[in-house]
Design a protein around this nucleic acid. Structure first.
Lengths: 239, 239
DNA sequence: CGGTGTGTTGAGCAAGGTCAATCCCCGTGG
DNA sequence: CCACGGGGATTGACCTTGCTCAACACACCG
């Protein structure tokens, strides 16, 4: 059930068999969520966190004028709202962008884990810090990159993240979101996203259709995006 | 030395005297940093983290074309690069925006703390999640708010954060940064920052000069910014 | 007294936004 | 089999926010 989470963690540090057991014992419940359902609401108190088993989730915030900004994407193997464990109250909402399977982890179990397994605690802490590193890269994208670079960078990031959990193909990956949702990620309008995708297509850098990102040449895309994967902490280190 | 960090934590949870002792014992060294010195470089491995004793730090990332984006501001009481403890390698650089006093905490001590003090571990974990919550609010600002709202929101956030550590006055707070640095925070050009500040001044919402943000009416500013402090987790809860 | 860093302002420009029409795919019901 | 409807994608025409370039003001400091 949490295979992909284990893949994600194992890439970053060694996990012992007993630790693996411990992690496998975290989920209390498994659920299937329909597309476009919000499963956690900003401002609400939480007492469990969500591991994505498969499907695509996002976190978002709404503005009073109707604007919405997606602040992060979660794919299989991600602990989508682990930050809720220490924050106690979410500042963002969690939405299923596709039909999803999720595993629910009661905070009580996480708390117990922090009492008994310092190493796993540090690893879970690490994953929230990784999320924050991704936020920082998005801040950079939104603040300083052009629409084209921003989109190219986004595709690079998600390719790598899918690759980590075995969900990337050499020529692309499945990304079940609409252009409108893409716009909500990139701080653009849907119209401009459409034009930017057209540009990427014409430049033969990437092709987004039917929920699939096709990447003719990953190196070309990375170089167009000035993509540097350091922020994704891909090295294995004792943590 | 870490008084303001204690203030910041005590607002969010109860800290026992023995825990306080434990926290006070974290710093190994104290340093004074001159304005405009970068004290930690993106991509570099780190084995210590920085507590701001006083002064103003920021984290930033550079783009190849010369663009720079500041991804966060740190004031007295902040653990500026605690994320480095689990990430091992920084994805952003840390710069002193004013002359700063900092305390250095070796990661070895943090590691020991995670082995022995689960509650303090959760609290420190909380602070990195709080940083991430701030990142998310910045993502929202950069993606969806106008220059005016963005700036107003930024001033509100920093007023509250200064207030928490006793550094806010009812009518404003000291913020020793230049308009250029402000631009690097807000994803704007210095010229546009200047015009936006002029607007804020004319609307009698805020006045930024000589490193001081003067706020005639905090409520007016908050309402112009649509500022909601939920994301700053101001409640005291067992964590 | 000149240099450097910072702030201010104007004029013109461009990236991206807005509005609105059209298209395309696909599922549904007659 | 075909008409219909709805969600999403695409495109054109025009507009606005914020950017670029450049000049100038001002303070502080060696």
């Amino acid at each position: 059930m949490i295979e992909k989470l284990l893949m994600k963690l194992s890439l970053r540090d060694v996990i012992s068999p007993s630790e693996e057991e411990r992690l496998r014992a975290l989920p209390a419940e498994r659920q299937t969520i329909e597309r476009h359902r919000t499963i956690a609401f900003a401002g609400r108190e939480v007492n469990q966190s969500i591991i994505v088993v498969n499907g695509l989730l996002c976190r978002y915030k709404d503005l009073r004028n109707g604007g919405r900004q997606i602040s992060g994407i979660h794919i299989a193997g991600d602990f989508a709202d682990l930050h809720g464990f220490t924050l106690k109250r979410l500042d963002d909402s969690i939405l299923a962008m596709t039909r999803c399977e999720i595993a629910l982890v009661p905070h009580e179990r996480l708390r117990k884990l922090t009492e008994e397994c310092p190493h796993l605690t540090r690893l879970l802490w690490f994953t929230t810090n990784l999320d924050a590193a991704i936020h920082r890269e998005w801040v950079l994208s939104l603040g300083r990159r052009s629409a084209l670079q921003r989109m190219a960078h986004f595709f690079c990031e998600l390719w790598v993240r899918h690759d980590i959990v075995g969900l990337a193909q050499p020529d692309g990956f499945a990304l079940g979101m609409t252009q409108n949702e893409l716009a909500e990620c990139m701080g653009l309008t849907p119209v401009h996203v459409n034009r930017t995708l057209k540009l990427l297509r014409e430049m033969d850098l990437a092709r987004f259709r039917n929920g699939y990102v096709e990447i003719p040449g990953l190196d070309e895309l990375k170089s167009a995006a000035e993509f540097d994967d350091t922020y994704l902490s891909l090295e294995s280190r004792p943590r």
